[in-house]
Computed example of a mutant assay.
Amino acid sequence: MTVTAATEARTTTLPEVTDPSRVTPKDARELSRLFFDQLAVLEEGTPECQYARNTLIEMNITLVRFAAARFRSRSHDEMEDIVQVGTIGLIKAIDRFELTREVEFTSFAVPYIVGEIKRFFRDTSWAVHVPRRLQEARIQLAKATEELRTRLGRTPTVKELSQLMCLSEEEVNEARLASNGYTSSSLDATISSSNDGEAALADFIGADDNALELVEDFNALAPMIAGLDDRERRIIHMRFVDELTQAQIGEHLGVSQMHVSRLLNRTLAKLREGMLSTT
């Protein structure tokens, strides 16, 4: 018997399930075996294969609701997302399940569903994305902190946490820093203030100081000014420190204003060229 003939011999007409979502869990287990048996021999992409796969999904959607029930404390909108994500886990389980495993499909599918939900929380719950290593370290840190606080009656030190967690003190501090990325607050959020009672968080955030940008320029400019001759440095000092006019500088040097202008332009061009080359 050829492979095609053997496949045709195994393929039987699947029962028509009018409303798979209303099938009881007991009946769903029995029907699922039949549908999985046929799904294994049906050609992928055919209407029969699609019918078998879709029916399996709808019949076992109660597994998703069962797994999602442990997260019932979440908001309504979050629960809708959890069910959708859990359904993806159910579909993955259906696509990978084989009757030859000799295990109940429910036992096989629930870990897939829960795993997909947990992955969803891991990827979306953090306000700032951090590596999975630090996400797991944060959970470990929270448990260790609570355990030591109960045992010692005080907040544990970094050294005590590192010993319990079997991590270096640097890794503990890194986990603490990563914990700040778990939640975020609006800059308009009100917080208590000792002076005015309440104030917005944004009021406590410093503004940019544009003058700080000049620090780098001054540091880069200092050796170039030191490389000028005495007269050039004197002209720069009188013009930009003493804030004298070109005519006043000319009087101090005993030269005309035009000559001061030429000297100043030449010196500034030299400094500008040096700054550009440094940049």
Rank of each mutant, 00 (worst) to 15 (best):
E8S: 13
S21L: 11
D27I: 01
R29I: 08
R33I: 06
L39Y: 06
L39T: 01
T46F: 08
E48P: 01
C49S: 10
C49N: 09
C49G: 07
A52M: 04
T62Q: 02
S75K: 02
E78V: 15
I82A: 10
Q84H: 09
G86I: 00
T87F: 10
A93G: 01
D95G: 11
F97P: 05
E98G: 03
R101W: 15
E102N: 15
V103L: 04
V103T: 09
E104A: 13
F105N: 08
T106A: 14
F108D: 03
A109F: 10
E116L: 07
D123L: 04
W126C: 07
V128W: 14
V128C: 13
R133P: 02
R133M: 06
A137D: 14
A144K: 04
E146W: 12
E147S: 15
L148C: 00
R149T: 10
R149Y: 03
G153H: 07
M165V: 15
E170W: 01
E170K: 11
E171Y: 07
E174H: 07
A178T: 09
L187Y: 08
T190L: 15
I191C: 15
A199N: 02
A199W: 04
A200C: 12
F204P: 00
A207H: 06
L212M: 05
L214R: 02
V215S: 02
E216V: 10
D217H: 14
D217S: 12
A222S: 06
A222H: 06
D229C: 13
D230M: 04
R234H: 00
I235R: 03
H237R: 05
H237F: 05
M238S: 11
L244Y: 11
T245N: 05
A247L: 11
A247S: 08
I249G: 02
G250I: 14
H252T: 06
S256P: 02
V260K: 05
S261R: 13
R262L: 13
L263V: 00
R266I: 00
R266P: 02
G274S: 09
G274N: 11
L276R: 12
